[in-house]
């Protein structure tokens, strides 16, 4: 199932992110996803997230699919050139994985193999273009594909709270031009800024999923404010998390904060993308509290 069909039906599409481990035992990851994420539409599988080497996204997606979940295959341009990316996109389609998310990817210097060669032969925009080209039945250089071409729901990301929001919108337009069908956003903590962004982004006519992180504690928020691009947690939320450490630790405060953001932003967007960062178990509660 392609999630674009759901957007087309006017459904509020909920996805969540999971990261494969650095190892070959994925049973726990799959079991956890099955337990906590079965209620949502699809599960994004990250691709060597933050440039930290982990088990193959494609393999993890295949296991998720076997377990009855709908995986979204995240593909970054950091580790593979245009041959490998096309090859993997076709491989995904062959496995029945038709939901993809095209990303440029973090620089290799950000991760645990800082000496690795950063590829970036393509980028998010040209990767979307490549996926669109495959859908038309040829590869990037025009060689015909054998048999029926693949069909993807082609996702992309945008950073609505970025301090370069105009440049982000310009890039979003390029992604639409290259064939993006839907967007997931970087984590939002300031609803009013997101709503303002959506006022500008709606001109592109593509569904946008609000990105949400459940804040775990004040320290995590301060870390994100210092280090994570496009993420800003306002001070009053940090204070709220710091006020009652036990409540925050139990996840109650974080889930409340995230639910409030979702409620405020829901009328302005077409879906939700949860980055649980290990707190997948809180997702059902978050959904309940947010009224989804």
């Amino acid at each position: 199932m392609r999630i674009t069909e759901l957007f087309d039906n006017g459904e509020f599409v909920v996805t969540a992110e999971v990261g494969p481990p650095k190892g070959i035992h994925l049973e726990h990851l799959v079991a956890e996803a099955k337990e906590y994420l079965s209620g949502i539409t699809a599960v994004n599988v990250t691709d060597n997230q933050s440039s930290v080497m982990r088990t193959s996204t494609l393999a993890t997606c295949a296991l998720m699919k076997q377990a009855g979940l709908t995986p979204i295959y995240q593909a970054t341009c950091r580790d593979r050139n245009r041959l490998a990316l096309q090859s993997d996109l076709l491989g995904a389609a062959a496995l029945g994985i038709e939901n993809i998310l095209c990303l440029t990817g973090d620089h290799t210097k950000m991760g645990d193999h800082p000496g690795a060669k950063p590829v970036f032969d393509l980028d998010s925009v040209s990767l979307l273009h490549v996926a669109s080209t495959l859908e038309k039945g040829t590869d990037l250089t025009g060689n015909p594909l054998v048999g029926e071409p693949p069909k993807f729901a082609k996702g992309a990301v945008v950073s609505p709270i970025s301090d370069s929001v105009d440049a982000q919108l310009a890039k979003m337009e390029r992604k639409v031009m290259a064939g993006a069908d839907y967007f997931q956003t970087q984590a939002v903590f300031e609803s009013e800024k997101f709503i303002e962004f959506m006022e500008k982004a709606k001109q592109f006519g593509k569904p946008v999923q609000l990105g949400v992180i459940i804040p775990k504690n004040a320290g995590m928020c301060k870390f994100m404010n210092r280090n994570v691009a496009g993420v800003h947690v306002p001070q009053y939320m940090i204070d709220e998390l710091a006020a009652d450490k036990e409540r925050a630790k139990a996840g109650i405060t974080g889930v409340e904060i995230a639910a409030k953001i979702i409620k405020e932003c829901r009328p302005y967007c077409q879906g939700l993308h949860i980055m649980a960062l290990g707190w997948e178990a809180k997702v059902p509660e978050l959904m309940k509290l947010a009224g989804i």
């Binding site: 973090d106 990301v157 301090d163 370069s164 440049a167 890039k171 390029r174 970087q186 691009a229 496009g230």
Partner: peptide, 30 residues
């Protein structure tokens, strides 16, 4: 990243994710 289609999401306060002393090239271009 030598990107040719616009900025990535990695710039923080207009600086590059790789080197906080380096201005984001695509922010400059924009």
């Amino acid at each position: 990243k030598s990107l040719v289609n616009g900025q990535c999401g990695g710039a923080k306060n207009g600086k590059c994710e790789v080197d906080p002393d380096m201005e984001c090239g695509w922010e400059r271009i924009y």
